[in-house]
């Protein structure tokens, strides 16, 4: 199992954001993408997810991917449980897995609440629960700590640690400090951004 970037470059809006990014993650490994705003952290995550073609280089992911993106991708008028169940059905996960994932992000009590009633941080945690419930070995997390209180950040760090103990791969883009022991750091410093 691996996630590898080989000399990957990214162009956005006719401008080179970063180039020559190479790294490889094997089972149990993690990497944190760091750098200032606008340097292309989210673009790197989208390239890893296969949503954006790299301008140069190649990306190989050998296993299923779970993506935590900026948008929650949950229907506002449905309940948390229904919203997650829709994605769980696509991922082949059952109701128990969803309930456990909700419990793991500390939102078990809100399962019956419509998504539109949730706060920003809570919505983020539901999206994180979808990543957990998906059972995918490769996690791509775009700013997973955004909007979370300190207790939730602690839970997030524990989830990441547990996933890696189980042989999972984590690639996280974050501008907030996140305790991921032994993670590689991928520093993006676009030529123009400096």
């Amino acid at each position: 199992m691996s996630l590898a970037f080989r000399r990957v470059a990214c162009d956005r809006g006719g401008r080179r954001l970063f180039d020559d990014v190479s790294f490889a993650l094997a089972a149990g490994e993690a990497a944190v993408v760091a750098g200032p705003n606008g340097v292309g952290k989210s673009s790197l995550i989208r390239i890893a997810a296969g949503l954006l073609p790299p301008a140069e280089g190649e990306v190989t992911a050998t296993e299923r991917i779970a993506l935590l993106a900026e948008a929650a991708a949950l229907d506002a008028e449905r309940t948390v449980r229904e919203g997650l169940a829709f994605w769980a059905a696509l991922d082949g996960a059952d109701g128990v897995t969803v309930a456990q994932a909700l419990d793991a992000v500390g939102l078990a009590a809100l399962a019956g609440v419509p998504v539109r009633m949730l706060s920003t941080g809570q919505r983020r945690r539901v999206a994180m629960a979808r990543v957990v419930a998906s059972g995918a070995p490769i996690w791509l997390l775009d700013e997973p700590g955004n909007g979370l209180d300190s207790a939730s950040v602690g839970r997030l760090e524990a989830l990441i640690a547990r996933h890696r103990d189980g042989g999972g791969i984590v690639l996280a883009a974050t501008h907030l400090p996140l305790a991921i022991p032994g993670a590689q750091t991928i520093v993006l410093s676009g030529e123009e951004a400096a």
């Binding site: 949503l51 991917i65 779970a66 948008a71 696509l90």
Partner: peptide, 8 residues
């Protein structure tokens, strides 16, 4: 982001 998630 629903389309993103579907495509992933």
């Amino acid at each position: 982001g629903v389309l993103d998630q579907l495509r992933v």
